[in-house]
Design a protein around this nucleic acid. Sequence first.
RNA 1: UCCUGAGUAGCUCAGCUGGUUAGAGCAUCUGACUGUUAAUCAGAGGGUCCCUGGUUCGAGUCCAGGCUCAGGAGCCA
Length: 482
Amino acid sequence: MGQRTKIKALLQSEQTNIEVTVKGWVRTFRNNQFIALNDGSTNNNIQVVVDFENTDPAILKRITTGAAISVVGQLVASLGKGQTVEVKATEIEVLGDSDPEKYPLQPKKHSLEFLREIAHLRFRTNTFGAIFRVRNSLSFAVHQFFQEKGFVYLHTPIITASDAEGAGETFHVTNFDLLNPPKTEDGEIDFKQDFFGRPTNLTVSGQLEGELGAMALSDIYTFGPTFRAENSNTTRHLAEFWMIEPEMAFYDLTDNMNLAEELLKYVIRYALDKNKEDIEFLSQRLEEEEKQKPQNERSDMSLLDKLQFCLDNDFERLTYTEAIDILKESTPNKKKKFQYPVEGWGTDLQSEHERYLVEKHFKKPVILTDYPKDIKAFYMRQNEPDAQGRETVRAMDILFPGIGEIVGGSQREERLDKLEQRMDEMGIPKDELWWYLDTRRFGACPHAGFGLGFERLVLFVTGMGNIRDVIPFPRFPKNAEF
RNA sequence: UCCUGAGUAGCUCAGCUGGUUAGAGCAUCUGACUGUUAAUCAGAGGGUCCCUGGUUCGAGUCCAGGCUCAGGAGCCA
């Protein structure tokens, strides 16, 4: 195969009147003369000009939407408007035909719902090309951020036996013949005979194992897939999603928040630098989408503005208790506009409350800390009760506009007695987590960490509305196609 | 899982209180045109009206059950 130049490079080329080879997929073929060609290196197409009078009509007929072609020609300054350079073709080879009667992508706008049904082909659209290039950059930036800080990328297991965290319903992992699993004398399934000799499942979080790494390597992070078998049908949940989970020894909650905020700003800035054109395209796409909405639901900021705003401003930090006070005094609460009125202290915030704080009250990302201990996980460090005897933990959630919770983290409980007491209270089996408790027995130290939902980050940066559109092949209830 | 809405041509949709042969735009195909940018103009083809059952002389339309999708809620990242 001969060398080819990628379209991104061609469009940036300072030289013209040179011979080039370009390969890609036909987006449109206009006028029997102009091919809009795309190879995924950029959202922009290169225009290939065909001398149709001197080209075999059999070849012309095969240049259809979706076909893969190879073109040799001269890179020249464009004679038409709309592009600066174009390729005057001298040789066109059709590498792969695409039957236009059957090819589902048409040179027209498609709904995101339809494209979701043809996820194997949606990469070939402008929107999804942009999304997945941005996703790639964000992913790379995450690694670069942590590597620059000397964090160790730790691979925590995908298959685990611990469901102890109670982070959600798990997918079981088994080798059994489901119709005929071995039974014990009591008629129970005999997991001793299963592959691992015990019940196992796909991980819901690498945190507990991550903490083990941090207790020796100081600063670690995981970045891998996570699985939750919850029957969630929302625009913010997936059954298989990617999570970034750093754990840092000798960090307290403030250090933890600082790191999370710095990480988010770093990766957003990286994507803005690296994928300017893609994000501009997505920003424009969003603006057009917003025009379809009624005036009062439209956002006053463009995607680009929102991202820049996020970089330029400190995230608002306040405690759960302060948030409750604000919500109690808020206009929608007084006018009984909330579906769930804010009355007492101690219950979890509803989506509408979080949205009010982020989108109406502060109008920027918000970090809520020190939640009531009864609504949080067992491993979070307990605060001293306040003057009124209210018990909280050193938890922090970062809430983003339009997304809700994007980060959940905490300072971990390093005191063995407090941790064991909490596990007893919550019915967490200590014997199963003996290895976790060992870190509190041998050289325990203050430490902290958080989980960042990667797809939620991609949602925010791309301005997309449904999480199923920012992962190549989404897994959700009743769907595992592709 | 709950609430609301939807499912009609390849796509996006219209189809009234049940009535004869189910429509439009785009896409596709054929022809014309040939520096186009969602090209344009003319013509043509294209339907399991989501599935199952029921009511009725007659169902895309009404009823029941199911499936799928979308938005919202809960769970959370």
